Computed example of a mutant assay.
Amino acid sequence: MRLHGIRRRGVRLMLAGVLAGVLLPAAATQAEAAAARTYTVWQWNVAGNAIHGGSTTDGMVDQAAASVVNRDADFAGFNELCQGQYNALVSELRAKGWPADPQNFARFEPSRQAGNSSVCHGEAFGNGLFSKRPLGAAARITLPDDGTAEKRNLLCAPLADGTATRFCTTHITTNQSFNVAQLDSVRQKLEGYHTAGETVLIAGDFNAQPHYGRLNSFYAPSLDVPNYSNNTGAYRELDDNDTGNCLGYGEWTADGTPDATPPCGGKAKIDLIFARESALAGPYSEDSLAISTSCTGVPACSDHRIVIGTVTVN
């Protein structure tokens, strides 16, 4: 009887061990997803067709890849990127040893398909995203049509590491009426990811300045400073706490004349990096870099600045 009891206890212990082996990975995954982690997000509208004409040899690709690596970015978003430039960036970043998985770190989605010789020498043109860590399957969401030849999109991809972290990039139309519709479409998709338990970081050219009313549905009410008192959203832009430049607004990002004067004067800020306020688990900050004039054959490497943000999230 005693021996029989020992065997039974042994069976129970073995079963407990098996169950623990089944349950521990799920518990570990949940703990990993909940743990605070810090990411650096890098964003640039490169004007790949308008300024570079699709060139991969005038210095823009080299400078972009070097900046991503030198700034130790975790994610990088590109707008107005030609397919050939995207391919060259994949090669450059691989050669520099930036991605942990050289075969699974980049995604591209055209907003103009290949075949139009007046754009990128006939190549596709659109948004690209890159990740230091391996990526899962990308989501490619077409935004409300503004009636032009360019079909704007939201490009997102999750990390494959079990942290439920997703990175997105987008380039919103300049048409004000459709700008609103596209912003709403992007925001609804971000909220859908949040409801599904994901932490999303989004960077891109929103063609809307922080003080525009159409971004009130993005910014959280906790951003309550002059010029920013009617917010109804759930997000913080990583430069909205910049007291050294323009509190609530941040540093300018785009050359040229803005369609509405920024609250602190100067040029426009339309390249933005957002994180959901409920996901914040520590400090955040953002800077925009001076536009390089080192590209050959053009006065400047873009009409947009590179924007770099760092954030700690759950």
Results as ranks from 00 to 15, higher is better:
205 D>R: 08
205 D>E: 11
205 D>P: 03
205 D>T: 08
206 F>N: 01
206 F>S: 02
206 F>P: 00
207 N>S: 09
207 N>P: 04
207 N>K: 05
207 N>R: 04
208 A>V: 02
208 A>F: 01
209 Q>N: 06
209 Q>W: 04
209 Q>K: 09
210 P>D: 06
210 P>C: 12
211 H>R: 12
212 Y>A: 12
212 Y>R: 12
213 G>K: 10
213 G>V: 06
213 G>M: 07
214 R>T: 09
214 R>L: 12
214 R>N: 14
214 R>D: 14
215 L>M: 15
216 N>R: 14
216 N>G: 07
216 N>H: 14
217 S>V: 10
217 S>T: 13
217 S>I: 07
218 F>C: 04
218 F>M: 12
219 Y>W: 11
219 Y>F: 15
219 Y>M: 07
219 Y>I: 01
219 Y>N: 05
220 A>M: 08
221 P>I: 08
221 P>M: 11
221 P>K: 08
221 P>G: 08
221 P>A: 09
222 S>A: 14
222 S>Q: 13
222 S>I: 12
222 S>V: 13
223 L>A: 04
223 L>Q: 05
223 L>C: 06
223 L>P: 00
223 L>R: 07
223 L>Y: 04
224 D>Y: 13
224 D>P: 01
224 D>N: 15
224 D>S: 14
224 D>A: 13
224 D>G: 05
225 V>W: 03
225 V>C: 07
225 V>E: 03
226 P>R: 11
226 P>E: 08
226 P>I: 06
226 P>C: 11
226 P>M: 11
227 N>Q: 13
228 Y>D: 06
228 Y>R: 07
228 Y>L: 10
228 Y>G: 01
229 S>R: 15
229 S>H: 12
230 N>R: 13
230 N>Q: 15
231 N>M: 06
231 N>E: 06
231 N>Q: 10
231 N>S: 06
232 T>Y: 11
232 T>K: 10
232 T>H: 12
232 T>N: 12
233 G>H: 03
234 A>P: 00
234 A>R: 05
235 Y>K: 03
235 Y>H: 05
235 Y>I: 01
236 R>P: 02
236 R>N: 14
236 R>E: 14
236 R>Q: 14
237 E>R: 06
237 E>F: 02
237 E>K: 04
238 L>K: 00
238 L>A: 05
238 L>T: 02
239 D>N: 11
239 D>R: 02
239 D>G: 14
240 D>C: 08
240 D>Y: 03
240 D>F: 02
240 D>P: 00
240 D>T: 04
240 D>Q: 11
241 N>T: 15
241 N>V: 13
241 N>A: 15
242 D>F: 04
242 D>V: 09
243 T>H: 10
244 G>Q: 09
244 G>P: 08
244 G>R: 05
245 N>E: 14
245 N>T: 15
246 C>E: 00
246 C>K: 01
246 C>W: 00
246 C>T: 01
247 L>Q: 12
247 L>G: 04
247 L>T: 09
248 G>L: 01
248 G>A: 09
248 G>Y: 01
249 Y>N: 02
249 Y>C: 03
250 G>A: 09
250 G>H: 01
250 G>Y: 00
250 G>M: 02
251 E>G: 04
251 E>M: 10
251 E>K: 10
251 E>I: 04
252 W>A: 04
252 W>V: 00
